[in-house]
Design a protein around this nucleic acid. Structure first.
Lengths: 389, 389
DNA sequence: AGTTAATAAGTAAACCTTACAAACTAATTA
DNA sequence: TAATTAGTTTGTAAGGTTTACTTATTAACT
């Protein structure tokens, strides 16, 4: 079908969402005030609110105060974030995290296990056990759950729910949704891990109230997720935001060979693995990127040189990103972003020099549970329930 | 207001657009077939079609054939692109072009004059004269015109209709909409010239049926326009797509000073002005970019070197663009794109080497009238009439 | 203190718009 | 003449709005 046609049910669904959004944003709020704010007549608002109360999304909470000019006291309405719970899963190269949140993104339970131990076999079974345990712990059944959101470290076909290619997991064309639906009779949504990270930050993290957001993850590799006009932008082949492939140095690019097969140019200059390798070669001793940052901070000249080089390229890449997207904000996440204070100044200077207008760069706000929260955000974004973000 | 509320009028408006789109795409078509295609009931389709006929958007054109299994002959319906006419204006650094098109983008009349002659005074008056002449020529009045679309070579606040900054015209905070509305009582929409170019190519040019398009204009300077998910992406400050600011060479960037004030790095490497200057300096003789390309094509080594350098940087910039946006197609426009066959191979090779997946690169399809057509596309896109693109 | 006017919240009833289903008329083929 | 398709008529359901009402409250006036 080309386009959604309109009918009565469609407009009711539309208006009930407007009313619910208004309640969430301004709770506690009365029917009357909703009517004024969203410009829908009082009787209609009342009817929609009743609907929301029956569904459990909203409840009445006593009376408010009348104005000084007199008049009946308003009945206050509040949003109930525990109408439904959300299951979020983050399948990364090192660990598989899962958790259960309410509709406001509060995490009530969290579990994780090492990916590698279950990669060959039993990963989904183990995941199922973890989730069942958490549900029991919280005294919930699948009836109380809206669905499952999943983030995977790889390019994902979100329509089919298939991971097209995930080097970190050695997966190709893995039908995640299908596999999970043998364990759960719930709606399941799958997307790339960087994409769910932006969604999470947009929902309750560093990107709240922003509409154009770039999230850059700098870990072993480099990737990014993009929110434009409030919605995830995925590109024509689910592979927008391949920030690791930026080329920032024409001369080095000429005889460029990836550090790791499948790594892009910028990844090979500024990624975690690359930083570790560069310094290791220089000092003939095996070190990690994190150690490199520490050494640099402690004044080691070799380390400083490597970091400086990596950040210079990263900074140019980010400058280019800003010039093309004109985002409101750049959020830095991933392992390396923990060392943000160390390289902040150098980065800012480069960005200032090469972009036509400045753009705020800040570190990610969500911590360990970011993946789970993001996966839940994906679910709320994609699943067509009354409450959508 | 936060969000469009739904009511009866809203859904009628929605459905009538679906019906009209269906007619345009499949004309000639019968009421009955529309009903089947768009899944709207026969009575409703009939009612909406009648509405469209009264408004003039659609007319009946005889009977079609019945099927071999019998049945009444269908009444065929066609779209009438001459219900309304569109006025398009393109205000560039060298010329101001204006024209009148129908709803399918056919240009019925076209005028242009030199910008510089009227920049200090009387530009809008001259424009008004041109448009009035064309209207008379076509025996039209403003009653027959939907509105005016305007493209300007500068950063534009499309809500306010104000050109924030246009170096090519030496304009700052120029309230174009306001100025034009003293001459015309019509809806007026203003946007950046590259933005209207993509809109035009998307409408009836090289980007028809694509949803993610990057349009790169390489002329004196370098700029780009972006269509994502079928809509123009403008960024947070109306300045997305500043492709001229890409940095593709870390080492040269270190001591970079713009060729022309306000020029970005890539513009200084690969823009038309820059190519001309680079070669001129090399051979101690004043030449233009166009001449440089011709010389290169005729085997001049100095010219080839300059071009090769420019294209190398351009190619890296385009590669970066593709990695970040994953577009379906890149459209090359602007003066230099006329020399596309000369540099195509080198460009393709670079893109292939540095992007994770390939992306079609093709030259723009619309010629001299591109600006006017694009401006009309802007009007159709922004103006909320029954027929929208 | 008691009464009254003004004001505000929320609901009920009647009505409007739109879409749809079912039944109908019209026109055509085999 | 039966079957089939196009298009319309008629009545109904779903949703939102308007108007008028009830309920509840404050403030001002007796």
């Amino acid at each position: 079908m080309r386009k959604q046609k309109g009918n009565a049910a469609y407009i009711k669904n539309m208006n009930i969402k407007i009313v619910l959004d208004c309640i969430i944003e301004h709770e506690p709020i009365s029917r009357s005030e909703i009517s004024k704010r969203v410009m829908i007549s009082k009787p209609t608002v009342s009817q929609l609110v009743n609907h929301l109360i029956v569904e459990g999304f909203v409840y009445e909470t006593g009376m408010g105060n009348s104005t000084t000019t007199g008049g009946r006291k308003p009945v206050q309405l509040c949003f109930n974030p525990k109408t439904s719970y959300l299951i979020g899963v983050d399948i990364g190269g090192s660990k598989v995290a899962s958790g259960i949140t309410d509709l406001k993104g509060r995490v009530y339970s969290y579990r994780e296990f090492a990916t590698q131990e279950f990669l060959d076999e039993g990963l989904f079974k183990r995941l199922h056990t973890d989730i069942e345990e958490m549900l029991t712990e919280l005294k919930l059944t699948t009836k109380n759950v809206l669905g499952i959101g999943v983030g995977v470290a790889g390019v994902t076909d979100i329509e089919k729910g298939v991971v097209i290619n995930a080097p970190a997991l050695a997966w190709q064309n893995c039908p995640i949704r299908e596999k999970l639906s043998t364990y759960f009779e719930l709606p399941i949504f799958v997307d790339n891990d960087v994409n769910i990270s932006v969604l999470g930050e947009h929902w309750i993290g560093a990107g709240v109230d922003k509409t154009n957001i770039i999230y850059i993850s700098i870990g072993t590799g480099i990737g990014s997720g993009i929110i434009l006009n409030g919605n995830l932008y995925r590109g024509s082949n689910y592979s927008a935001g391949e920030f690791g492939y930026q080329v920032t140095d024409r001369q080095m690019a000429r005889n460029f060979n990836p550090v790791v097969e499948g790594f892009g140019f910028l990844e090979s200059m500024s990624g975690g693995i690359s930083i570790g390798q560069q310094l290791s070669e220089k000092i003939k001793k095996q070190v990690t990127a994190k150690e490199a940052f520490e050494m640099a901070d402690n004044g080691d000249e070799n380390a400083q040189e490597v970091i400086q080089f990596a950040i210079e390229n990263l900074g140019l890449g980010i400058s280019n990103y800003i010039s093309l997207f004109d985002p409101e904000i750049i959020i830095l996440g991933g392992g390396i972003s923990g060392s943000y204070p160390i390289f902040k100044d150098q980065l800012d200077e480069i960005i200032k020099k090469f972009t036509p207008r400045k753009c705020e760069v800040i570190p990610a706000k969500l911590g360990k549970e970011a993946g789970v929260i993001g996966a839940c955000a994906l679910l709320l974004k994609e699943y067509d329930s009354i409450y959508t973000i």
